[in-house]
Amino acid sequence: MTSKGAEVGTVRPGGRTARVRAAVLRATEDALVEQGFDGLDLGAVAQRAGVGKTTVYRRWGSATALVADLLVDMAEQSLPRADTGSLTEDLLANARLVRRTLADPRQGTLFRAVIAAASCDERTAEALRRFYQVRVREWAVCVEQAIQRGELPEDTDPDEVVRAVSAPLYYRLLASQQPLDEASADRAAHAAVAAAKAGVYARTR
């Protein structure tokens, strides 16, 4: 049962309920990788997860709710940010993590499916926005620390710097189909650092 006002599928449960959630989300991920969002069916997910169909319908109720909860789980499970004491090294770590994720056959396919779903469903789009807000804010601390060390102008927007690191990699994944190699990740990080030091990512007034 969810607390009053909570969105279905987003409450963090414990015990058996946690095991059911984990199994259903894994099955949801498998279905997205294999069939895409259009092939996501609650009954089929329940069968994959080995749980009752009524459990899935009662707890989540829709394919979009499943994807939203999967994105919550993905944000919770993401690796923590680097903390090397150097902006360049921190952002290189960020770029390489993004590249490894997107270049992975399973994870890259999963992200393409989720992004495709978000393009035509507002609930999924909002869940995806929340996912990236969590990840950007996690890594923005690296930029904030660089500002405090005097590496960057004081008016630098940390979130924009972090977005600038991953944007070229997502472009390769979704648009150009160019290889997602480590050189492209390193180039994105170095470009973001150079632009930030030049004041390109100053906060707008």
Score class of each variant (00 low, 15 high):
1 M>R: 12
3 S>F: 03
5 G>Y: 09
5 G>K: 01
7 E>R: 15
7 E>N: 12
7 E>F: 09
8 V>Q: 13
8 V>A: 15
10 T>F: 12
10 T>H: 14
11 V>C: 08
13 P>R: 15
15 G>Y: 08
18 A>Q: 13
18 A>L: 14
18 A>H: 07
22 A>R: 14
24 V>G: 06
24 V>I: 14
25 L>E: 10
25 L>M: 14
29 E>A: 15
29 E>M: 10
30 D>S: 14
32 L>Y: 09
35 Q>F: 07
36 G>M: 03
38 D>Y: 00
38 D>C: 01
39 G>W: 02
43 G>M: 00
44 A>T: 10
46 A>C: 06
47 Q>L: 05
48 R>A: 14
49 A>F: 09
51 V>F: 06
52 G>S: 08
52 G>Y: 00
53 K>F: 00
53 K>P: 00
53 K>A: 06
57 Y>T: 08
60 W>I: 12
60 W>G: 10
61 G>P: 02
64 T>L: 02
64 T>A: 15
66 L>Q: 03
69 D>W: 06
71 L>W: 06
72 V>L: 14
74 M>V: 12
74 M>F: 00
75 A>L: 08
76 E>V: 11
76 E>D: 13
77 Q>T: 07
79 L>A: 15
81 R>V: 05
83 D>F: 00
83 D>T: 09
84 T>R: 10
84 T>F: 03
85 G>N: 10
85 G>V: 12
86 S>W: 02
90 D>M: 09
90 D>R: 11
92 L>R: 13
95 A>R: 07
95 A>Y: 04
96 R>M: 07
97 L>K: 09
99 R>V: 03
99 R>Q: 13
99 R>A: 11
100 R>G: 10
100 R>S: 09
101 T>H: 08
102 L>A: 01
105 P>K: 04
110 L>S: 05
111 F>D: 10
113 A>I: 10
114 V>C: 00
114 V>T: 05
115 I>V: 12
117 A>K: 07
118 A>P: 04
118 A>H: 06
120 C>N: 11
121 D>L: 05
123 R>L: 12
125 A>D: 15
126 E>Y: 01
129 R>W: 00
132 Y>N: 06
134 V>G: 03
135 R>H: 09
135 R>D: 05
135 R>I: 13
136 V>E: 08
137 R>M: 12
138 E>N: 10
138 E>Q: 15
139 W>S: 14
140 A>W: 02
141 V>G: 00
143 V>F: 05
143 V>Q: 07
145 Q>K: 15
146 A>W: 08
147 I>N: 07
148 Q>G: 03
150 G>P: 11
152 L>A: 08
153 P>E: 02
157 D>M: 04
159 D>I: 01
161 V>A: 08
161 V>D: 03
162 V>H: 02
162 V>R: 03
165 V>A: 04
166 S>F: 05
166 S>N: 11
166 S>R: 13
171 Y>R: 13
173 L>S: 05
173 L>R: 01
176 S>R: 08
176 S>H: 05
177 Q>M: 00
177 Q>I: 00
180 L>H: 06
180 L>C: 06
182 E>G: 05
183 A>K: 10
185 A>V: 11
188 A>K: 02
188 A>Q: 02
190 H>K: 14
190 H>V: 14
190 H>E: 12
191 A>C: 02
191 A>E: 12
193 V>K: 04
196 A>T: 07
199 G>A: 05
200 V>K: 09
201 Y>V: 03
